[in-house]
Computed example of a mutant assay.
Amino acid sequence: MKSIGKTTKKKLIFSIFVVLIPVIIGLIVLNFTISNNDRTEASIKEGNEETLVYLGKENAKNEILFIFDYSCPYCHQWMKDIYPNIEKEFIETGKAKFRTQSMVYLNEVSLKLSKVDQNLKVHQPDQYYHVFFEIMDNQNFFDIPEDEIDKYISDLAKTYHLKENMLKKDPTIDVINLTRQYTKQYQLEGVPTIIVNGKVINNSFDINEIKAELTD
């Protein structure tokens, strides 16, 4: 894949203003490895009716939020190119904790994997990042046939000894409404979006811009 020079080329930009999201999502619905525990341990907090699952020390001074869509190829690229630096320099050293938030912007796969994502956070938080890294390390769902995603989720359940019906059921928190809430709160224009200590980073692929917002 060729490198991408400008911010606008590094983000997959969509028309996701709040007033349009119900229409977009309506159309979507109608028409359609992590290494072992040597990664930092996940901690869990409750807030705003969400279950938040973190990588890193719970009392870390900084929080890095990765907002993404499982079907977004640039989100997979961010995890490959940028995340390893974040993990080594900030998460493993205890300077920052890291969490994720999946969006439903692109297709039916986005919707189904966001349900998996939310259900894991609530019911199997200890397995969340194992599954998350597995998906982000090995798959790009932008153009995967829709009839293959159910089998993929079934295979994930077998691999990680999870209940398939738990992964596939409708979560207690509606993922479409959650997408709408995050989009409105942070005025999102596309994914991937990185938020450090509540501030949206202009260029998610600029590691120096991310570091600049992290306190010592």
Rank of each mutant, 00 (worst) to 15 (best):
S102R: 00
S102H: 06
S102V: 00
Y105D: 01
Y105N: 01
L106E: 03
N107F: 04
N107G: 05
N107E: 06
E108P: 05
E108R: 13
E108Y: 12
E108G: 15
V109S: 10
L111T: 03
S114Y: 01
S114Q: 03
K115N: 14
V116P: 02
V116L: 11
D117P: 04
Q118H: 09
Q118R: 13
N119G: 01
L120G: 00
L120Q: 02
L120M: 09
K121E: 00
Q124D: 12
P125E: 03
P125A: 03
D126F: 08
Q127M: 14
Y128D: 00
Y128W: 07
Y129E: 06
Y129K: 04
H130K: 15
F132R: 10
F132I: 12
I135F: 05
I135W: 00
D137M: 07
D137I: 11
Q139F: 15
N140C: 11
D143H: 09
I144R: 13
P145G: 06
E146Q: 13
E146D: 15
D147S: 14
E148T: 12
E148P: 08
I149V: 15
D150S: 15
D150H: 09
K151L: 14
K151G: 14
K151V: 13
Y152D: 11
Y152M: 15
S154G: 14
S154D: 14
S154E: 15
D155H: 15
L156Y: 06
A157T: 09
K158E: 14
T159I: 15
Y160R: 10
Y160S: 11
H161T: 13
H161V: 12
H161W: 09
L162P: 02
N165Y: 10
N165V: 10
M166C: 11
M166E: 14
M166Y: 08
L167C: 06
K168H: 12
P171H: 03
P171F: 02
P171D: 03
T172S: 15
I173H: 07
D174F: 06
I176P: 01
I176K: 11
N177H: 11
L178C: 01
T179G: 02
T179R: 03
T179H: 02
R180E: 07
R180Q: 10
Q181Y: 05
Y182A: 00
T183P: 01
K184L: 08
Q185L: 10
Q185A: 09
Y186D: 02
Q187Y: 08
L188K: 02
L188E: 00
G190M: 10
T193R: 05
I194C: 06
I195R: 04
I195D: 01
I195A: 05
I195V: 15
V196I: 11
N197K: 07
G198W: 08
G198A: 07
K199I: 13
V200L: 12
I201G: 02
I201K: 03
N202W: 08
N202T: 14
N203V: 06
N203A: 06
